[in-house]
Amino acid sequence: MASHKLKADSVDPWWVRWLLIGATVGFMVFLLVLPLGVIFWEAIRKGWGVYVIALTDRSARNAIMLSLIAAGISVPLNFLFGLAAAWATTKYSFPGKSLLISMIDLPFAISPIIAGLMYVLVFGLQGWLGATLASWGIQVIFAVPGVVLATIFVTFPFVARELIPLMQEQGSEEEWAAISLGASGWQTFLKVTLPNIKWAILYGVLLCNARAMGEFGAVSVVSSNIRGRTNTIPLQIDALYNDYKTAAAFALASILATLGVITLIAKTLLEQKLEQQNVQEEST
């Protein structure tokens, strides 16, 4: 494929290079590094005792529990959806395929607040289904189901988005080979497709999970801010911060920040893995 490019560009004079690198580093420090650092600093500034209490306090435990429930439901569902959508859009050709792929991306384009509002319009008491559901004794908005639904919406495309480009690139020759050797559809999927996409799945699931645990806007619209009842971790952070309980807010934030950092590391590792694979393929 491509010729090996000269990476370290000696074309630009040294002062240009150092100016640009300096600007990059400066900008990123102020924009990214300091905020990341301050989360952990503020979390433990008042000592480990405060940190531990902040995380084990009853309302914090409830918030963590609710976030886990929301992620626990939305991640498997969106994982299954991602697999199905990736298979349907990469293994077959049909009219309207690119439209379907764009629609899968829609939740990225829709602001979380608007997403929450949309669910209020469907499930709220003045919405389409709210009154009917209420008569059955089911409350969605301002209750746990609403939080779960909003979380499903905002994390909807993550697994599919990781899988579609990868499976498109891999094509379906290996699958056809397996079928021609007598394998069934499930055997082909489990033994041939799955091993080829497992790292992308892992990353997609991690990303989906990090977002599910951390979603704020959409969830805040559909949850009642009655603390301890429908507070997820981000909502709890919001409440604590507004009550000037900064240390407790940052303690909870540090959990989510750690999750975010793990996701970043996983992404970097995955990219390295893919790059290695490409290099290997090219070299032979």
Binding site: E173, W176, A177, I179, K191, V192
Partner: peptide
């Protein structure tokens, strides 16, 4: 395809990596 019992060899091998 599977029922026909044909051995198909692809141009780009299609080996399971």
């Amino acid at each position: 395809v599977g029922q026909r019992r044909v051995g198909f060899v692809f141009q780009h091998y299609a080996l399971f990596k």
